[in-house]
Design a protein around this nucleic acid. Structure first.
Length: 414
RNA sequence: CGUCAUUUGCCUGAU
């Protein structure tokens, strides 16, 4: 069984969970708790939570007792697939079966709640966990600080940081990076740069993620030359730029119209042995589309070796719309659906906007209905596009009607 | 100490 477990583990590590699964089904040996632990965590990492839950039930039926870590993997997987209710139920179940949740169980749940229901809800759970006598760990604080910053609650984030220190804990590199990213996204890049230095002085070496967060902040402020300098200098500080570093810089350079620089960065990336990802190509495709070179963008994508995903398709559809090539936009939209790509709210919004600007408001309306019918919830961008189209054609009454409808549906106007 | 394992940070598309 031990040999066999190692094999299952090896397969899971290579992302070959299915083969591991087959191996297990292939009897001969009886799987033990370790076998299931390996399989379940492997499946959860790939977000194949239904299969992981099946494994859980199966092992219980075989008389094996799942331990905390197995439950924690599942709670995390359920949270990451937006199934918070199931995650909470599983936590209950774990208590009932005599397995006490630990702080990691709650960290996973707090994170899921923070993402799906907002950080305020997560903070409520945090409080009740404290009241029950659990000691929070650094990741607990990191999760909550990140949640606060993502909702622009910077002051409270710093207050929680004080709480971390008062609890006798030491912030780690992730704590600092969460702040660096949060400050950048609040438009405080210079403060983020200070914090990058500060963490170093406090004995917390910035890693590639810390650098990438700042590179992104600089790019968003259009300070691409500084971003480029940071990419060049980070190596000397012990962090090799990775695909995200280059992607971020290329994106920044595209956004300020420095197309040649962007291509040079792309070439440098390849030369440095960093493999471009689908995001790299999506950035270049979008850059070309914004430069009114949609055909070139398509060509680039088709030679990239990557299949068009929902993001690249949306860039192309938007590019066609902006060039007034609405028919081609629709054709591409239909083609992506045919190929089984699921358009999301951004795709729909781009096309609705294009239809509106082309004066085809009825089609735009129909598309809004179609997206809702498919369970894709329109957001404020979607409504703004359609309302603006209606008002542009002096159909202000219809625009107002739609405004009322969006509010009734719980979509907050901006 | 024969085998496994859980939680936190960075990049791309729409008004």
């Amino acid at each position: 069984v031990v040999t066999y477990n190692s094999l299952v583990n090896g397969l899971c590590k290579n992302g070959r969970v299915d083969e591991a699964w087959m191996l297990m089904i292939d009897k001969g040996f009886s799987p033990n708790v370790i076998t299931y632990s390996t399989l379940i965590s492997g499946l959860c990492k790939e977000l194949r939570v239904d299969e992981a839950m099946k494994c859980l039930h199966e092992m219980i039926q075989l008389g094996l007792r799942p331990h905390t870590i197995i439950y924690n993997s599942l709670i995390d997987g359920l949270g990451k697939t937006k199934r918070l209710e199931s995650a909470k139920q599983l936590l209950e179940k774990m208590v009932l079966s005599g397995c006490k949740p630990d702080i990691v169980s709650y960290n996973a749940l707090i994170h899921g709640i923070s993402r799906e229901q907002g950080v305020s809800e997560a903070l409520k759970l945090f409080d009740s966990v404290l009241k029950r006598g659990y000691e929070p760990e650094v990741p607990t604080y990191n999760i909550l600080i990140d949640g606060l910053l993502k909702e622009d609650r910077v002051t409270e984030a710093f207050e929680l940081f004080s709480g971390l220190m008062k609890g006798g804990l030491e912030p780690d590199a992730i704590t600092y990076t969460v702040f660096i990213d949060g400050l950048c996204k609040a438009g405080r890049v210079d403060d983020a740069l200070l914090m990058l230095k500060d963490m170093d002085e406090k004995g917390c070496a910035p890693d590639v993620v810390s650098h990438n967060a700042v590179i992104n902040g600089l790019c968003k402020e259009k300070r691409v030359d500084e971003a480029e300098a940071l990419v060049s200098s980070m190596e000397a500080r012990g962090c090799s730029p990775n695909a995200i570093s280059f992607n971020t810089l290329i994106c920044g350079q595209c956004r300020v119209g420095k197309w040649k620089k962007a291509m040079a960065t792309f070439k440098l990336m390849v030369k440095r042995g960093v493999t471009p990802t689908v995001v790299t190509y999506n950035i270049l495709v979008d850059g070309l589309c914004k430069a009114k070179q949609v055909d070139e963008a398509r060509e680039l994508l088709s030679t990239s070796g990557f299949l068009a995903d929902v993001v690249s398709c949306t860039s192309l559809i938007n590019g066609f719309c902006k060039e007034g090539r609405i028919t081609e936009a629709i054709t591409l939209f239909d083609a992506m659906v045919d190929k089984g790509r699921v358009p999301d709210v951004v795709t729909y919004s781009a096309l609705i906007d294009g239809l509106g600007k082309a004066g085809r408001l009825e089609d735009a309306r129909l598309l809004l209905e179609a997206m809702e019918a498919k369970g894709c919830v329109p957001n404020v961008y979607t409504y703004n596009s359609l309302i603006s189209g209606l008002c542009g054609l002096e159909k202000v009454d219809e625009g107002l009607e739609l405004f009322v409808a969006m509010v009734e549906k719980g979509c907050v106007p901006d």
